[in-house]
Design a protein around this nucleic acid. Sequence first.
DNA 1: CCTTTCCTGGCAGTAGCTGCCATTTAAAGG
DNA 2: CCTTTAAATGGCAGCTACTGCCAGGAAAGG
Lengths: 220, 220
Amino acid sequence: MSDIREAPGGTRRGRPPLTDAHRREQRLDISRQAVRLFRARGVAATSGEEIARAAGVSERTLWRLFRSKESCVEPLLSLALDAFREVLRSWPPDRDLAEHLAAEYAFDPGAPPEDVEAVLAVVRMTRDEPALRAVWLVLHERAEDTFAEVIGARLALPPGSLEVRARAAVVNAALRVATDDLARAAGEEGLTALTEQKGRIGEVMRLLAAAGTESGENHT
Amino acid sequence: MSDIREAPGGTRRGRPPLTDAHRREQRLDISRQAVRLFRARGVAATSGEEIARAAGVSERTLWRLFRSKESCVEPLLSLALDAFREVLRSWPPDRDLAEHLAAEYAFDPGAPPEDVEAVLAVVRMTRDEPALRAVWLVLHERAEDTFAEVIGARLALPPGSLEVRARAAVVNAALRVATDDLARAAGEEGLTALTEQKGRIGEVMRLLAAAGTESGENHT
DNA sequence: CCTTTCCTGGCAGTAGCTGCCATTTAAAGG
DNA sequence: CCTTTAAATGGCAGCTACTGCCAGGAAAGG
């Protein structure tokens, strides 16, 4: 809304802020190091100082970029949510939501394979590490706002309305269960069977066929 | 399963463990004090020592009963989830799930009104306090296991199956959105309009009519 | 050059916890 | 009664996650 970046007349002075892209890359790099250490030694046995050292940054800036050591996994986890968000945004008007998701979403972030493997590893770790689970759930819920925008636009309802929020939360829940299941399967069988997993994801997505799209007529 | 409480021959020696009821009451009492302080001074400005002192217990035992000061709100928040769980368990076989929930669930824990108000206050606080939000989300997800038991029994499917877990997560999401909305409304208008709120809860619950019950036939 | 603005690091301090051990409490046996 | 056993609690030391504060250093314009 009122995001005034530049005063109307004057020229910029001083060092320009880092670009958002740079910031994201910086956080992502730290995230990679943190996840590597978490996988190797466990979360409890990994200190913030080690993460900072591995990322080639001071501990002070680490705490500036992440509010807790567990939240260092956020950038990697966000890759999965971003990919889903893109598919949701590409939802064509003439198609059923569940059909669209079941057909188009296959958990394929446009990211290097080592990042994808790291994401799946973190999702698996959230089962045993309560703090990581909390991060995962909070991230998921934050993504609901974006889901609500898409769904709200489709239903011609405000994104903050009760119905839209409920539908966004339902989509979010299905995504979480599907992703957890995929990560578990990838951990047990390796991700060779990823194509088979696409079927299971589609299965979950199809479950919200009724709740996600049609039947906008049964509310007052 | 193998919950052997008593060795086959000998008699119990030493002090018996506290009953679960006592434990719950103890944690609930601490929870009340913590929420009171959180509401008065904010979470950041409330120390674990203060919570312990207010609850008449040593700081050491506080940390034994709660892993973090934010998790002190868990017992109170659980009241809301327990109430819903009870309604879900009373789901009659001949009724639609959404209908049942819309008709029977009205956010009325069998608890003293000051506890109910505290619960709503905490739910409201989760909007601005990220740590409390994380606790709320984790608690919700933990409740999904119970939801899955009920739904699994109804669908004649194992509670751990993908479909049952997905449906439980969907119900859970709807409950969360409805509860957040109710807490917000109660905070703005006071809870005089609670009867009106029952209508909005029903609205949300009816949204999962299709996803929650019938249409078990559209999966492979 | 200087100035401004942003970024980063170092350092001190706090508080949220944890481990360890002593003390107390509630039961049963002698 | 006293002893024994197990569970609960408290006190203390210590570690680490994290914060505030301030001092440079880097990138822009004057």
